[in-house]
Design a protein around this nucleic acid. Structure first.
Lengths: 224, 224
DNA sequence: CGGAGTATTGAGACAAGTCAAATTAGGTGG
DNA sequence: CCACCTAATTTGACTTGTCTCAATACTCCG
């Protein structure tokens, strides 16, 4: 079920491309492909961890649902990114739930495969640890933003981060519903809506799921 | 400079005790001890990563200072915990600043030592990756709290987490200044102060840096 | 052309931040 | 040991930000 295009995607995926070629081949030939529809899950919080995942097509969110039913989105993974690598070496449960946001194609590598591959070729250890560290670092920066920036600033940062640093202008196509973005940024949908409105003076306009940025420098100035 | 008591502390430290004995010995004999005073740093954000650290005595905070000068505390490490393990295998910079909160004694293991030890004995992979995963998981839970709980709830959670789950009553000795706790919880000192006041009806009383919890169940009820 | 779900807007309540003042705690030298 | 000075913490008054609930407008399909 693994198409040639899938292999190409993996070959350029952050984690997989840092693997030594023999390991890469091994994971590719021992993994499987899963197709999931929006709202379907790869795993749920509390399930025993059995595999790591790489997104071949689509978008996958990792979220935690509190006992009161409110969902907090921790991270969203797009094509070429992978998650749950660090769990490959632990007998543990997934701490989050992985759900497709759009129809998605995901490559699944069983933990056992990874364990064996690493045992045979310890050079790949750096790749696993590197990928895990990248997640760690990303989460640290997110915590910093949640603690020291307002909702408005987090929205502004999202726009700036979704737009190439060089240009003076930019367009961001939000690939999911706005309440998803709101949850990712740690605010309510209404607040996100009002934030976009408040960013108009900074050259931000929204058209449905499209954000138009007229003046990148002006938006950056919000942080002073 | 490594005292017998230091070795004992390391032997019971989360990360070190999960190491195979030969690796443990090697790290212990190749590391060094550093004493730092409050406000002194082990490293600053942006410095090239050279070592990993384990706290032998005292408290070390990891923080990020934004360009506007405001500091966000990401995590606080106490005796027996370690940090920066994942950086041992990367040529990268520290993403945060490590500062002592009280007079502290820290064990420092150069990255090279760790790299060599692991190369010789790949069994220790699990230990490094496990420690890194623990951090990752902790940060995920923190993000969830920041996104879905109010300041008041985060304070309540801090008290509950600082107190043994069994008992009905408890005492928490905050080991640092309150503005540090405020920053750790992502709020202003004034707000923390008012939060404690608002928790009085839930059986929480403060006496300086001491928090007295009269009724654990009552406080838990805040989350319903 | 509905109609369900999604997004925006409005009004008011509540939470958190700011600035300033008052109080309390800690540490130092007499 | 106490007085005193400084810094930490609390409290007050006010502003601003965010949430809630409700109503309206908009989209996207079927």
């Amino acid at each position: 079920v693994l198409k040639a295009s899938d292999t190409e995607t993996l070959r350029s995926a952050i984690f997989f491309k840092s693997l030594p070629p023999p390991i890469f081949e091994r994971l590719v030939s021992n993994g499987r492909v899963v197709e999931i529809e929006p709202e379907q899950t790869l795993f749920r919080s509390g399930d025993p961890a059995e595999a790591m995942f790489a997104v071949l097509r689509g978008l996958v969110k990792l979220s935690i649902t509190g006992r009161d039913g409110t969902e907090a989105i921790v991270e969203i993974f797009h094509v070429g990114t992978s998650f749950a690598e660090a769990l490959a070496f632990r007998r543990d449960n997934y701490p989050v739930t992985a759900t497709a946001l759009v129809p998605s194609r995901v490559f699944v590598v069983p933990n056992q495969t990874i364990q064996q591959a690493i045992a045979d070729n310890p050079d790949a250890f750096g790749a696993i640890l590197g990928a895990t560290y990248e997640h760690l670092h990303k989460l640290v920066r997110q915590i910093e933003r949640l603690k020291s920036n307002s909702g408005l600033e987090r929205v502004a940062h999202f726009i700036l981060a979704s737009t190439p640093p060089g240009g003076d202008t930019g367009v961001v196509q939000i690939p999911y519903k706005k309440h998803i973005l709101a949850s990712l940024l740690g605010m309510k949908p209404e607040t996100l809506s009002r934030s976009f409105a408040r960013l108009k003076p900074y050259g931000v306009a929204t058209e449905g799921r499209q954000i138009l940025l007229k003046d990148r420098k002006a938006l950056k100035r919000l942080f002073d």
